[in-house]
Computed example of a mutant assay.
Amino acid sequence: MKIGIIALQGAVPEHVSMTLQALNNLGLKGEAVTVRQPAELAAASALILPGGESTTISKLLKRFELYEPLIKAAENGVPIMGTCAGCILMAKEGDGEVEKTKTELLKIMDMKVNRNAFGRQRESFETPLTIKGLVEPFPGIFIRGPLIEEVYGRCAALAYYQEKIVMARQDNLIALSFHPELSADTRIHEMFLQMI
């Protein structure tokens, strides 16, 4: 199996490393590959859309002709995980900041996001999160993270921070406000791989 990491911006090497560790921990044969072209995306068994700057990633997805293929992959049941900016892009609805910056969302998850809910870079923090499906708390690393303001339809909340949604799942799609790839904990990547 090939796990494709959309390599346009963000913590791509960290996602590659974490995915390889998770595959090893689960005893699965597979590889983590970077994706910059539609053919590479089409060859992947699952996809990760990393963090970065959501408006820039949105434009790059269009430029590299990955925008429509990502939507089709989601519709075809390919597991996709979006972290931070990836979470924003997966949402059906954004806040005023998303509209102001003309960020084109993929609109693949039944949720509304608030783009910079956790403030600026200097307000980054780490906190233990209780995540549905995990026994022990997970180290949530928030860097200018978005907030999932609302889930509806088939989308369900998996984790909260101060009673606010920071992780959600809808069928084959999973979105996180935080950065699991920056922790030393592979459990979320393992959870994601088990969706394949």
Score class of each variant (00 low, 15 high):
I131K: 13
N25P: 07
K72P: 14
G119F: 14
V78N: 08
P137C: 09
R122W: 11
A44M: 08
G10T: 13
S183Q: 11
T101W: 08
K59M: 04
T34H: 10
I131S: 15
K29Q: 07
T130Y: 08
A11R: 02
R36S: 06
I131Y: 11
Q194R: 01
S183K: 04
T103S: 01
P128K: 07
E126D: 15
R36N: 03
A74E: 08
P180T: 10
E75R: 15
T127H: 13
K107D: 08
N116H: 09
L89I: 04
L129K: 00
P137D: 13
P79W: 04
E190P: 07
F142M: 06
T55W: 06
R187F: 00
G52A: 11
S124R: 05
Q162C: 10
T103I: 03
N24Q: 15
L134M: 10
L20M: 00
E75L: 13
Y67D: 15
N114F: 05
R36M: 02
P50A: 01
E75K: 13
P79H: 05
I174N: 02
E97G: 14
A42F: 14
A43Q: 12
L106W: 10
R36L: 00
F192Q: 02
M111Q: 14
A32E: 02
N25L: 14
S183E: 12
G4K: 00
E149I: 11
Q9N: 12
T56M: 02
H15E: 10
E150M: 10
A44Y: 03
N25S: 09
I165Y: 00
F142R: 01
T127R: 05
T103N: 01
P69S: 07
L47K: 04
C155N: 00
I71K: 06
L106Y: 11
M195R: 01
S58R: 01
Q21G: 14
T103G: 03
L26P: 03
L8T: 02
P13D: 01
K59Y: 05
